[in-house]
């Protein structure tokens, strides 16, 4: 099991450094792995993905930390050098495929642009490779002659995945790749990723708010809260034995199709403003298990098992906390204390 990507203490600031959308994020991805990066809106997951891609919006910049892809620190590279690595080392699948595809060109021409201009292939080679790529994502190569608007939503998303895979990148980052899709089409796109992982050994980061998507697709998961990764580990361990109170809360708040008896428990309150985050653990104000130390000191990652860590001061007691977290009343008490 070799490490492909290692992100250490990465921070991204907006607005002249007054708002840290990502503030000390840690992440690892092994070669051939599928990592789910989950969190709620505003937690910094998209900013983190964009920082890795080197496509942060204007006004945002990386202020510290490193992101090593195959040993090379992407943060230390000059912008031109980073751009040169797009498509080849890293490729991106955005949430709405329409923004990855150019509406006025046929898919074949868009494939040629990447494969010939960036990949140095001849036209004939490019067309052959494009046909292979379409087949790999379950589209008929004949559809390469079509314009993006002639595709349905799910097919467009698969075409965007095919384009991202064009130069056999080491890593694909997909930002909410199935969020805008209906459930049956969503399943088809998820299965496309699954077969690419099984057959081509694709390494990918799937950014999503949906734990079920991670459970279906990913072997590793990183849970983000207020700009930091709070828990990281194998998907089954994190979802079945959540060890950070935020992950425990998320699992309680998530309805499942079959368990109608269970009562959902919301996590009361809202995430802190990133312009003025609380000292210590950022989840402490909403956490039913917070102690004095939690509001003072930033919790370091505590290793619970190989590859599984939780950034919680009480991580060693996780099993006992998990028991208490299953009771919806545990979470209601925090709301009453806050009110």
């Amino acid at each position: 099991m070799t490490e492909l990507l290692a992100v250490r203490d990465l921070a991204v600031a907006y607005a002249n450094g007054t708002v840290h959308a990502v503030d000390g994020a840690n992440l690892t991805l092994r070669r051939g792995g599928m990592l789910g990066l989950v969190g709620e809106s505003g937690c910094g997951k998209t900013t983190l993905a964009r920082a890795l891609m080197g496509v942060l919006p204007g006004g945002a910049r990386i202020t510290r930390g490193e992101a090593r892809l195959d040993g090379t620190d992407l943060v230390a590279l000059a912008p031109a050098e980073r751009r040169a690595r797009l498509w080849r080392d890293l490729a991106f699948v955005p949430q709405t495929a329409m923004s990855a595809l150019d509406p006025v060109y046929r898919l074949r021409d868009q494939m040629r642009e990447v494969l010939c201009d960036r990949g140095g292939l001849s036209r004939a080679e490019a067309d052959m490779r494009a046909a292979e790529l379409f087949e790999a994502v379950g589209l008929h190569p004949r559809r390469l002659a079509d314009y993006p608007h002639q595709f349905s939503g799910g097919m467009r998303q698969r075409a965007a995945i095919a384009l991202a895979l064009a130069l056999r990148p080491k890593l694909v980052i997909a930002d909410e790749p199935v969020t805008a899709l209906d459930v049956i089409v969503q399943r088809q796109v998820l299965d496309t990723f699954r077969s690419l992982s099984a057959e081509l050994g694709l390494s990918a980061i799937i950014v999503t708010h949906d734990i079920s998507v991670v459970a279906y697709l990913c072997d590793q998961v990183a849970v983000m809260y207020a700009g930091r990764v709070v828990e990281h580990g194998p998907t089954d361990a994190v979802l079945e034995q959540p060890s950070h109170p935020y992950t425990m809360g998320l699992m309680n708040a998530f309805p499942d199709l079959e368990s109608d008896e269970a009562v959902l428990a919301p996590i009361e309150g809202s995430p802190p403003p990133l312009s003025d985050p609380p000292p210590g653990c950022r989840f402490a104000p909403r956490c039913p298990f917070a102690e004095a130390i939690c509001t003072r000191e930033v919790p370091p990652p505590v290793t619970l098992a190989p590859d599984h860590w939780s950034a919680c001061h009480r991580a060693p007691e996780a099993a006992a906390l998990r028991q208490r977290a299953r009771d919806p009343l545990t979470w209601r008490d925090v709301a009453e204390a806050a009110a």
Partner: peptide, 25 residues
Amino acid sequence: RALIRAVPRPYVDQPRDALPLHGAL
């Protein structure tokens, strides 16, 4: 049946077999 089978579940051990429905809407 296909609609229900297509819903991903929040745990790892879940059915992943092909949906009993082909084509697009």
